[in-house]
Design a protein around this nucleic acid. Structure first.
Length: 459
DNA sequence: CTTAGGG
DNA sequence: CCCTAAG
Protein backbone atom coordinates (compact mmCIF):
# COMPACT_ATOMS: atom_id res chain seq x y z
CA UNK A 1 0.00 0.00 0.00
CA UNK A 2 1.95 2.92 -1.20
CA UNK A 3 1.15 6.53 -1.11
CA UNK A 4 1.16 7.30 -4.83
CA UNK A 5 -2.00 5.37 -5.20
CA UNK A 6 -3.83 7.92 -3.18
CA UNK A 7 -2.29 10.73 -5.07
CA UNK A 8 -3.59 9.27 -8.23
CA UNK A 9 -6.99 8.88 -6.79
CA UNK A 10 -7.06 12.40 -5.59
CA UNK A 11 -6.02 13.52 -8.99
CA UNK A 12 -8.83 11.65 -10.52
CA UNK A 13 -11.27 13.22 -8.17
CA UNK A 14 -9.82 16.66 -8.59
CA UNK A 15 -9.17 17.13 -5.00
CA UNK A 16 -7.77 20.40 -4.04
CA UNK A 17 -4.09 20.20 -3.39
CA UNK A 18 -4.57 21.33 0.13
CA UNK A 19 -6.54 18.25 0.80
CA UNK A 20 -4.00 15.91 -0.51
CA UNK A 21 -3.42 14.34 2.76
CA UNK A 22 -2.95 10.69 2.55
CA UNK A 23 -5.39 9.13 4.91
CA UNK A 24 -4.15 7.02 7.65
CA UNK A 25 -6.26 4.21 6.58
CA UNK A 26 -7.51 2.83 3.40
CA UNK A 27 -10.55 4.93 2.61
CA UNK A 28 -12.24 2.53 0.33
CA UNK A 29 -13.85 0.34 2.91
CA UNK A 30 -15.66 3.45 3.98
CA UNK A 31 -16.83 4.48 0.60
CA UNK A 32 -20.31 3.33 1.25
CA UNK A 33 -20.56 5.38 4.38
CA UNK A 34 -22.11 8.71 3.82
CA UNK A 35 -20.50 11.23 6.05
CA UNK A 36 -22.92 12.33 8.57
CA UNK A 37 -23.51 16.00 8.35
CA UNK A 38 -26.10 18.03 10.07
CA UNK A 39 -28.92 19.32 8.06
CA UNK A 40 -28.52 22.92 6.98
CA UNK A 41 -31.95 23.58 8.32
CA UNK A 42 -31.04 22.72 11.81
CA UNK A 43 -30.94 25.79 14.01
CA UNK A 44 -27.46 25.15 15.14
CA UNK A 45 -25.89 23.68 12.17
CA UNK A 46 -22.37 24.23 13.14
CA UNK A 47 -20.75 21.25 14.52
CA UNK A 48 -17.56 20.92 16.30
CA UNK A 49 -15.43 19.34 13.76
CA UNK A 50 -12.61 18.83 16.12
CA UNK A 51 -14.66 16.84 18.50
CA UNK A 52 -15.90 14.78 15.70
CA UNK A 53 -12.61 14.52 14.05
CA UNK A 54 -11.47 11.57 16.00
CA UNK A 55 -14.24 9.46 14.70
CA UNK A 56 -13.72 10.39 11.12
CA UNK A 57 -11.59 8.72 8.64
CA UNK A 58 -9.28 10.73 6.58
CA UNK A 59 -11.66 11.06 3.78
CA UNK A 60 -14.55 11.94 5.98
CA UNK A 61 -12.56 14.57 7.64
CA UNK A 62 -11.64 15.93 4.30
CA UNK A 63 -15.25 16.10 3.36
CA UNK A 64 -16.24 17.87 6.47
CA UNK A 65 -13.57 20.45 6.14
CA UNK A 66 -13.85 21.08 2.49
CA UNK A 67 -17.48 21.82 2.65
CA UNK A 68 -18.54 24.58 4.94
CA UNK A 69 -21.53 23.60 6.90
CA UNK A 70 -24.78 25.03 5.86
CA UNK A 71 -23.64 25.82 2.40
CA UNK A 72 -24.52 22.89 0.31
CA UNK A 73 -23.81 24.46 -2.97
CA UNK A 74 -21.71 21.71 -4.34
CA UNK A 75 -22.78 18.84 -6.31
CA UNK A 76 -21.80 16.57 -3.61
CA UNK A 77 -23.92 13.61 -2.92
CA UNK A 78 -27.20 12.36 -4.01
CA UNK A 79 -28.51 12.58 -0.51
CA UNK A 80 -28.17 16.29 -0.46
CA UNK A 81 -30.67 16.44 -3.24
CA UNK A 82 -33.26 14.44 -1.50
CA UNK A 83 -32.87 16.44 1.64
CA UNK A 84 -35.07 19.47 1.82
CA UNK A 85 -33.05 22.27 0.37
CA UNK A 86 -35.34 25.07 1.35
CA UNK A 87 -32.60 27.27 2.55
CA UNK A 88 -30.74 27.01 -0.66
CA UNK A 89 -33.73 27.71 -2.74
CA UNK A 90 -34.57 30.76 -0.82
CA UNK A 91 -31.08 31.98 -1.25
CA UNK A 92 -31.37 31.57 -4.98
CA UNK A 93 -34.84 32.85 -5.36
CA UNK A 94 -37.86 30.87 -4.46
CA UNK A 95 -39.04 28.21 -6.77
CA UNK A 96 -42.32 26.58 -6.93
CA UNK A 97 -42.38 23.69 -4.51
CA UNK A 98 -43.24 21.25 -7.24
CA UNK A 99 -40.23 22.22 -9.16
CA UNK A 100 -37.91 21.92 -6.29
CA UNK A 101 -36.38 18.59 -6.75
CA UNK A 102 -36.07 18.79 -10.45
CA UNK A 103 -34.92 22.38 -10.45
CA UNK A 104 -32.39 21.75 -7.84
CA UNK A 105 -30.91 18.89 -9.61
CA UNK A 106 -30.71 20.94 -12.70
CA UNK A 107 -28.95 23.74 -10.95
CA UNK A 108 -26.35 21.47 -9.62
CA UNK A 109 -25.81 19.86 -12.92
CA UNK A 110 -25.45 23.21 -14.46
CA UNK A 111 -23.05 24.62 -11.97
CA UNK A 112 -20.71 21.77 -11.77
CA UNK A 113 -18.51 23.55 -9.34
CA UNK A 114 -17.10 20.23 -8.51
CA UNK A 115 -14.01 21.22 -6.81
CA UNK A 116 -14.83 18.30 -4.72
CA UNK A 117 -15.24 14.62 -4.69
CA UNK A 118 -17.86 13.48 -7.07
CA UNK A 119 -19.17 10.15 -6.22
CA UNK A 120 -20.78 8.19 -8.92
CA UNK A 121 -24.48 8.58 -8.77
CA UNK A 122 -26.44 5.53 -7.90
CA UNK A 123 -27.90 4.02 -10.95
CA UNK A 124 -31.54 4.71 -11.23
CA UNK A 125 -33.55 1.71 -12.17
CA UNK A 126 -35.42 1.75 -15.42
CA UNK A 127 -38.45 1.37 -13.21
CA UNK A 128 -41.16 0.87 -15.76
CA UNK A 129 -40.01 -1.63 -18.26
CA UNK A 130 -43.25 -1.60 -20.17
CA UNK A 131 -45.31 1.55 -20.30
CA UNK A 132 -48.98 1.17 -19.87
CA UNK A 133 -51.02 1.56 -22.97
CA UNK A 134 -52.74 4.64 -21.71
CA UNK A 135 -52.15 7.07 -19.01
CA UNK A 136 -54.75 7.47 -16.34
CA UNK A 137 -56.44 10.37 -17.98
CA UNK A 138 -59.64 10.20 -16.08
CA UNK A 139 -58.71 12.73 -13.46
CA UNK A 140 -57.86 15.34 -16.00
CA UNK A 141 -61.27 15.44 -17.49
CA UNK A 142 -62.99 17.33 -14.79
CA UNK A 143 -62.51 20.62 -16.51
CA UNK A 144 -63.76 19.34 -19.83
CA UNK A 145 -60.38 19.59 -21.23
CA UNK A 146 -58.96 17.03 -23.50
CA UNK A 147 -56.24 15.00 -21.99
CA UNK A 148 -52.74 15.87 -23.02
CA UNK A 149 -52.59 12.86 -25.23
CA UNK A 150 -56.02 13.34 -26.68
CA UNK A 151 -54.82 13.37 -30.20
CA UNK A 152 -53.68 9.84 -29.81
CA UNK A 153 -57.13 8.55 -29.25
CA UNK A 154 -59.76 7.79 -31.80
CA UNK A 155 -62.81 9.99 -32.01
CA UNK A 156 -65.31 9.66 -29.27
CA UNK A 157 -68.10 8.33 -31.36
CA UNK A 158 -69.53 4.92 -31.05
CA UNK A 159 -67.66 2.93 -33.58
CA UNK A 160 -69.78 -0.10 -33.86
CA UNK A 161 -71.65 -0.24 -37.07
CA UNK A 162 -75.30 -1.01 -36.68
CA UNK A 163 -74.98 -3.76 -39.18
CA UNK A 164 -72.39 -5.39 -37.07
CA UNK A 165 -74.69 -5.24 -34.12
CA UNK A 166 -77.70 -6.69 -35.82
CA UNK A 167 -76.67 -9.37 -38.18
CA UNK A 168 -74.00 -11.00 -36.18
CA UNK A 169 -75.37 -10.34 -32.81
CA UNK A 170 -74.21 -13.60 -31.39
CA UNK A 171 -71.24 -13.93 -33.59
CA UNK A 172 -72.79 -16.82 -35.42
CA UNK A 173 -71.95 -15.48 -38.80
CA UNK A 174 -69.29 -17.99 -39.50
CA UNK A 175 -70.38 -20.83 -41.67
CA UNK A 176 -70.16 -24.18 -40.03
CA UNK A 177 -67.39 -26.60 -40.70
CA UNK A 178 -65.01 -23.86 -41.37
CA UNK A 179 -61.69 -25.15 -40.38
CA UNK A 180 -59.71 -22.99 -38.05
CA UNK A 181 -61.36 -19.69 -38.57
CA UNK A 182 -59.18 -17.47 -40.68
CA UNK A 183 -61.26 -14.47 -39.77
CA UNK A 184 -60.05 -14.16 -36.23
CA UNK A 185 -58.10 -11.00 -35.74
CA UNK A 186 -54.43 -11.66 -35.37
CA UNK A 187 -53.89 -9.16 -32.61
CA UNK A 188 -56.37 -7.90 -30.19
CA UNK A 189 -54.85 -4.49 -29.75
CA UNK A 190 -54.36 -3.51 -33.31
CA UNK A 191 -57.03 -0.89 -33.18
CA UNK A 192 -57.63 0.51 -29.73
CA UNK A 193 -61.13 1.63 -29.17
CA UNK A 194 -62.93 3.52 -26.54
CA UNK A 195 -66.39 3.16 -25.33
CA UNK A 196 -68.56 6.10 -26.10
CA UNK A 197 -69.02 6.93 -22.47
CA UNK A 198 -65.37 6.78 -21.73
CA UNK A 199 -64.83 10.35 -22.79
CA UNK A 200 -66.29 12.06 -19.79
CA UNK A 201 -66.14 9.99 -16.70
CA UNK A 202 -63.84 7.21 -17.46
CA UNK A 203 -63.29 5.08 -14.48
CA UNK A 204 -61.20 2.92 -16.64
CA UNK A 205 -60.11 3.08 -20.18
CA UNK A 206 -60.44 -0.08 -22.13
CA UNK A 207 -58.52 -0.76 -25.21
CA UNK A 208 -61.20 -3.00 -26.50
CA UNK A 209 -64.81 -2.35 -26.88
CA UNK A 210 -66.96 -4.24 -24.52
CA UNK A 211 -69.45 -6.56 -26.05
CA UNK A 212 -72.07 -8.17 -23.94
CA UNK A 213 -72.39 -11.88 -23.94
CA UNK A 214 -75.62 -13.07 -25.33
CA UNK A 215 -77.24 -16.16 -24.07
CA UNK A 216 -76.65 -17.79 -27.36
CA UNK A 217 -72.98 -17.14 -27.21
CA UNK A 218 -72.86 -18.37 -23.67
CA UNK A 219 -74.51 -21.49 -24.90
CA UNK A 220 -71.64 -22.04 -27.21
CA UNK A 221 -69.26 -21.63 -24.35
CA UNK A 222 -71.05 -24.16 -22.21
CA UNK A 223 -71.03 -26.60 -25.03
CA UNK A 224 -67.36 -26.10 -25.40
CA UNK A 225 -66.83 -26.81 -21.75
CA UNK A 226 -68.88 -29.94 -22.12
CA UNK A 227 -66.57 -31.06 -24.87
CA UNK A 228 -63.20 -29.98 -23.61
CA UNK A 229 -63.72 -29.37 -19.96
CA UNK A 230 -62.86 -26.23 -18.10
CA UNK A 231 -59.56 -24.67 -18.83
CA UNK A 232 -59.07 -25.42 -22.46
CA UNK A 233 -60.35 -22.08 -23.55
CA UNK A 234 -58.26 -21.83 -26.63
CA UNK A 235 -59.51 -25.13 -27.87
CA UNK A 236 -63.07 -24.10 -27.23
CA UNK A 237 -62.57 -20.84 -28.99
CA UNK A 238 -61.08 -22.44 -32.02
CA UNK A 239 -63.45 -25.30 -32.26
CA UNK A 240 -64.73 -25.16 -35.82
CA UNK A 241 -68.34 -25.58 -34.88
CA UNK A 242 -68.46 -23.34 -31.89
CA UNK A 243 -68.90 -19.77 -32.85
CA UNK A 244 -68.14 -16.76 -30.78
CA UNK A 245 -68.26 -13.14 -31.43
CA UNK A 246 -65.63 -11.55 -33.54
CA UNK A 247 -62.68 -10.56 -31.47
CA UNK A 248 -63.48 -12.83 -28.60
CA UNK A 249 -60.40 -14.26 -27.00
CA UNK A 250 -59.77 -17.32 -24.97
CA UNK A 251 -59.41 -15.15 -21.92
CA UNK A 252 -62.84 -13.79 -22.59
CA UNK A 253 -64.21 -17.27 -22.50
CA UNK A 254 -62.49 -17.88 -19.24
CA UNK A 255 -63.86 -14.70 -17.77
CA UNK A 256 -67.35 -15.32 -19.03
CA UNK A 257 -67.43 -18.78 -17.62
CA UNK A 258 -66.29 -17.45 -14.31
CA UNK A 259 -69.14 -15.01 -14.33
CA UNK A 260 -71.76 -17.53 -15.20
CA UNK A 261 -70.46 -20.22 -12.92
CA UNK A 262 -68.85 -18.58 -9.96
CA UNK A 263 -66.21 -20.96 -8.78
CA UNK A 264 -66.69 -20.07 -5.17
CA UNK A 265 -70.26 -21.25 -5.34
CA UNK A 266 -69.73 -24.60 -6.87
CA UNK A 267 -71.56 -26.29 -4.09
CA UNK A 268 -74.63 -24.37 -5.13
CA UNK A 269 -74.72 -25.84 -8.52
CA UNK A 270 -77.48 -28.09 -7.50
CA UNK A 271 -79.57 -30.20 -9.69
CA UNK A 272 -82.85 -28.66 -10.54
CA UNK A 273 -85.72 -29.86 -12.52
CA UNK A 274 -86.56 -28.01 -15.66
CA UNK A 275 -89.08 -25.34 -15.13
CA UNK A 276 -92.34 -25.57 -16.95
CA UNK A 277 -92.28 -23.19 -19.84
CA UNK A 278 -94.38 -20.16 -19.18
CA UNK A 279 -96.66 -19.39 -21.99
CA UNK A 280 -96.20 -16.07 -23.65
CA UNK A 281 -93.30 -15.61 -21.42
CA UNK A 282 -89.99 -14.77 -22.79
CA UNK A 283 -87.61 -17.48 -21.87
CA UNK A 284 -85.84 -16.40 -18.73
CA UNK A 285 -82.19 -16.08 -19.36
CA UNK A 286 -80.31 -18.96 -17.98
CA UNK A 287 -77.15 -17.03 -17.55
CA UNK A 288 -76.19 -14.02 -15.70
CA UNK A 289 -76.50 -11.23 -18.12
CA UNK A 290 -73.60 -8.93 -18.37
CA UNK A 291 -75.42 -6.14 -20.13
CA UNK A 292 -78.75 -6.00 -18.41
CA UNK A 293 -78.87 -5.17 -14.80
CA UNK A 294 -81.83 -7.49 -14.53
CA UNK A 295 -79.79 -10.08 -12.79
CA UNK A 296 -82.53 -12.33 -11.72
CA UNK A 297 -81.00 -15.33 -10.23
CA UNK A 298 -81.06 -17.51 -13.21
CA UNK A 299 -80.64 -21.21 -13.17
CA UNK A 300 -77.32 -22.50 -14.19
CA UNK A 301 -76.69 -25.34 -16.40
CA UNK A 302 -74.25 -28.00 -15.61
CA UNK A 303 -70.77 -27.11 -16.64
CA UNK A 304 -69.56 -30.51 -15.82
CA UNK A 305 -68.13 -32.51 -18.55
CA UNK A 306 -70.16 -35.41 -19.61
CA UNK A 307 -68.81 -38.85 -19.24
CA UNK A 308 -68.09 -40.01 -22.65
CA UNK A 309 -68.37 -43.51 -23.79
CA UNK A 310 -64.69 -43.58 -24.30
CA UNK A 311 -64.13 -42.47 -20.75
CA UNK A 312 -66.27 -45.28 -19.53
CA UNK A 313 -64.17 -47.67 -21.48
CA UNK A 314 -61.11 -46.24 -19.85
CA UNK A 315 -62.78 -46.54 -16.52
CA UNK A 316 -63.31 -50.19 -17.15
CA UNK A 317 -59.72 -50.61 -18.01
CA UNK A 318 -58.65 -48.59 -15.02
CA UNK A 319 -60.66 -50.80 -12.78
CA UNK A 320 -58.95 -53.80 -14.21
CA UNK A 321 -55.64 -52.29 -13.39
CA UNK A 322 -56.24 -50.68 -10.06
CA UNK A 323 -59.49 -51.86 -8.65
CA UNK A 324 -61.07 -49.24 -6.44
CA UNK A 325 -58.00 -47.09 -6.25
CA UNK A 326 -59.32 -44.18 -8.17
CA UNK A 327 -56.35 -42.03 -7.44
CA UNK A 328 -54.12 -44.50 -9.21
CA UNK A 329 -56.35 -44.36 -12.21
CA UNK A 330 -56.12 -40.64 -12.09
CA UNK A 331 -52.38 -40.75 -12.17
CA UNK A 332 -52.17 -43.24 -14.96
CA UNK A 333 -51.53 -41.15 -18.02
CA UNK A 334 -52.69 -43.87 -20.35
CA UNK A 335 -56.19 -43.58 -18.98
CA UNK A 336 -56.49 -39.93 -19.89
CA UNK A 337 -58.25 -38.96 -16.72
CA UNK A 338 -56.34 -35.76 -16.34
CA UNK A 339 -59.51 -33.75 -16.69
CA UNK A 340 -61.21 -35.71 -13.95
CA UNK A 341 -60.91 -36.02 -10.25
CA UNK A 342 -60.87 -38.99 -7.96
CA UNK A 343 -64.32 -38.25 -6.76
CA UNK A 344 -65.69 -37.98 -10.24
CA UNK A 345 -64.24 -41.31 -11.21
CA UNK A 346 -65.60 -42.93 -8.13
CA UNK A 347 -69.00 -41.38 -8.53
CA UNK A 348 -69.13 -42.45 -12.09
CA UNK A 349 -68.22 -45.96 -11.20
CA UNK A 350 -70.69 -46.11 -8.37
CA UNK A 351 -73.34 -44.79 -10.61
CA UNK A 352 -72.72 -47.35 -13.24
CA UNK A 353 -72.38 -50.27 -10.89
CA UNK A 354 -74.46 -49.57 -7.84
CA UNK A 355 -74.67 -53.22 -7.08
CA UNK A 356 -71.08 -53.26 -6.05
CA UNK A 357 -71.94 -50.89 -3.30
CA UNK A 358 -75.05 -52.58 -2.19
CA UNK A 359 -73.41 -55.77 -1.13
CA UNK A 360 -69.95 -54.82 -0.16
CA UNK A 361 -69.30 -58.13 1.51
CA UNK A 362 -69.94 -60.13 -1.55
CA UNK A 363 -68.15 -57.61 -3.65
CA UNK A 364 -69.20 -58.39 -7.04
CA UNK A 365 -69.26 -61.04 -9.56
CA UNK A 366 -71.20 -59.52 -12.33
CA UNK A 367 -71.41 -62.41 -14.63
CA UNK A 368 -73.99 -60.64 -16.57
CA UNK A 369 -72.75 -59.01 -19.63
CA UNK A 370 -73.82 -55.50 -19.86
CA UNK A 371 -75.34 -55.15 -23.23
CA UNK A 372 -76.31 -52.00 -24.87
CA UNK A 373 -79.98 -51.86 -25.37
CA UNK A 374 -80.35 -49.63 -28.31
CA UNK A 375 -77.29 -48.05 -29.65
CA UNK A 376 -73.76 -48.88 -30.04
CA UNK A 377 -72.10 -51.71 -28.31
CA UNK A 378 -69.17 -50.62 -26.27
CA UNK A 379 -65.84 -51.57 -27.55
CA UNK A 380 -65.38 -53.85 -24.65
CA UNK A 381 -68.02 -55.26 -22.48
CA UNK A 382 -66.92 -56.08 -19.03
CA UNK A 383 -66.98 -59.43 -17.45
CA UNK A 384 -65.47 -59.58 -14.06
CA UNK A 385 -64.63 -62.42 -11.91
CA UNK A 386 -63.52 -61.96 -8.43
CA UNK A 387 -60.33 -63.77 -7.89
CA UNK A 388 -58.90 -62.88 -4.56
CA UNK A 389 -59.59 -60.44 -1.84
CA UNK A 390 -56.30 -61.08 -0.28
CA UNK A 391 -54.85 -57.73 0.44
CA UNK A 392 -57.13 -55.45 2.39
CA UNK A 393 -54.14 -53.79 3.96
CA UNK A 394 -53.51 -50.92 1.64
CA UNK A 395 -56.41 -48.75 1.06
CA UNK A 396 -54.23 -46.63 -1.06
CA UNK A 397 -56.08 -43.48 -0.37
CA UNK A 398 -58.44 -42.44 2.35
CA UNK A 399 -62.02 -42.76 1.49
CA UNK A 400 -61.38 -43.36 -2.09
CA UNK A 401 -60.83 -47.02 -1.75
CA UNK A 402 -64.19 -48.23 -0.79
CA UNK A 403 -63.58 -51.85 -1.21
CA UNK A 404 -60.89 -54.38 -1.44
CA UNK A 405 -58.78 -54.52 -4.44
CA UNK A 406 -59.74 -57.09 -6.90
CA UNK A 407 -57.97 -58.75 -9.61
CA UNK A 408 -59.58 -58.88 -12.90
CA UNK A 409 -59.93 -61.13 -15.74
CA UNK A 410 -56.74 -61.30 -17.61
CA UNK A 411 -58.44 -61.71 -20.88
CA UNK A 412 -59.87 -58.27 -20.95
CA UNK A 413 -58.27 -56.07 -23.46
CA UNK A 414 -57.92 -52.38 -22.90
CA UNK A 415 -59.71 -50.29 -25.39
CA UNK A 416 -57.69 -47.91 -27.39
CA UNK A 417 -58.38 -44.25 -27.40
CA UNK A 418 -58.72 -42.82 -30.83
CA UNK A 419 -59.17 -39.36 -32.13
CA UNK A 420 -61.95 -40.57 -34.27
CA UNK A 421 -63.89 -41.51 -31.22
CA UNK A 422 -63.27 -38.16 -29.68
CA UNK A 423 -64.44 -36.37 -32.72
CA UNK A 424 -67.56 -38.41 -32.92
CA UNK A 425 -68.34 -37.68 -29.31
CA UNK A 426 -67.88 -33.98 -29.59
CA UNK A 427 -69.99 -34.02 -32.69
CA UNK A 428 -72.81 -35.67 -30.91
CA UNK A 429 -72.57 -33.07 -28.22
CA UNK A 430 -72.69 -30.27 -30.69
CA UNK A 431 -75.69 -31.59 -32.48
CA UNK A 432 -77.58 -32.59 -29.42
CA UNK A 433 -77.36 -36.09 -30.66
CA UNK A 434 -75.87 -37.88 -27.79
CA UNK A 435 -75.18 -41.32 -28.86
CA UNK A 436 -75.04 -42.72 -25.47
CA UNK A 437 -75.21 -46.25 -24.46
CA UNK A 438 -77.63 -46.35 -21.65
CA UNK A 439 -75.58 -48.94 -19.93
CA UNK A 440 -72.43 -47.00 -20.21
CA UNK A 441 -73.38 -43.40 -20.20
CA UNK A 442 -75.59 -41.77 -17.74
CA UNK A 443 -78.77 -41.03 -19.51
CA UNK A 444 -79.96 -38.05 -17.47
CA UNK A 445 -76.82 -36.19 -18.29
CA UNK A 446 -77.22 -36.54 -21.99
CA UNK A 447 -76.47 -33.39 -23.79
CA UNK A 448 -80.02 -32.78 -24.73
CA UNK A 449 -80.87 -32.18 -21.15
CA UNK A 450 -77.96 -29.93 -20.63
CA UNK A 451 -78.58 -27.96 -23.74
CA UNK A 452 -82.25 -27.39 -23.59
CA UNK A 453 -83.13 -26.91 -19.99
CA UNK A 454 -81.31 -26.07 -16.85
CA UNK A 455 -80.40 -28.92 -14.67
CA UNK A 456 -78.28 -26.99 -12.28
CA UNK A 457 -79.23 -23.84 -10.55
CA UNK A 458 -78.60 -21.77 -7.56
CA UNK A 459 -80.81 -22.47 -4.64
C1' DC B 1 -48.06 -18.65 -26.45
C1' DT B 2 -51.49 -20.22 -22.98
C1' DT B 3 -53.70 -20.36 -18.57
C1' DA B 4 -54.96 -19.14 -13.66
C1' DG B 5 -55.88 -15.77 -10.62
C1' DG B 6 -56.53 -11.23 -8.93
C1' DG B 7 -58.23 -6.66 -9.85
C1' DC C 1 -62.12 -6.24 -19.62
C1' DC C 2 -57.20 -5.79 -17.93
C1' DC C 3 -52.79 -7.36 -16.07
C1' DT C 4 -49.31 -10.58 -14.85
C1' DA C 5 -46.96 -14.51 -12.92
C1' DA C 6 -46.17 -19.02 -14.20
C1' DG C 7 -45.54 -23.01 -17.26
Amino acid sequence: MNIPIFDDIFDDFQIRPSLRIPPLQDPFPQLSIIPRRPSPLEPNARVNIDSEANKLTGRQRALAQAKPLGAPEHNELEVSITAKPTAVLEARGTEHPKEQSRKKQKLYDHEQIADFVQLPRPQTKPKADKPRPFQPISVLNELHEPPPSAALFPPITPNVSQEEQDTDHAGIGRPPNQTKDPVRPPKKKKKPRLRPTASCIAKRVYTRERTAWTEEETDQLVKGVAIYGMGRWKSILEHPELRFREGRTNMDLKDRFRVVFPPNARHKWTRAMPEPPDDDQEAPSRYKSASKSTTKKSPLRAPKRLWTQQEDIELDRGFQLYGFQWNLMLKDPTLNFDQRSCGQIRDRFRLRFPDMYKQPESHYSPKEKRTSSNKKQPAKSSTWTRKTVDDPSEPANEEESEGPRDKTDSQMVPASHTEEEDHRLSNSILHNDWDWDENLTLAPLAWEDMATRPIYSFD
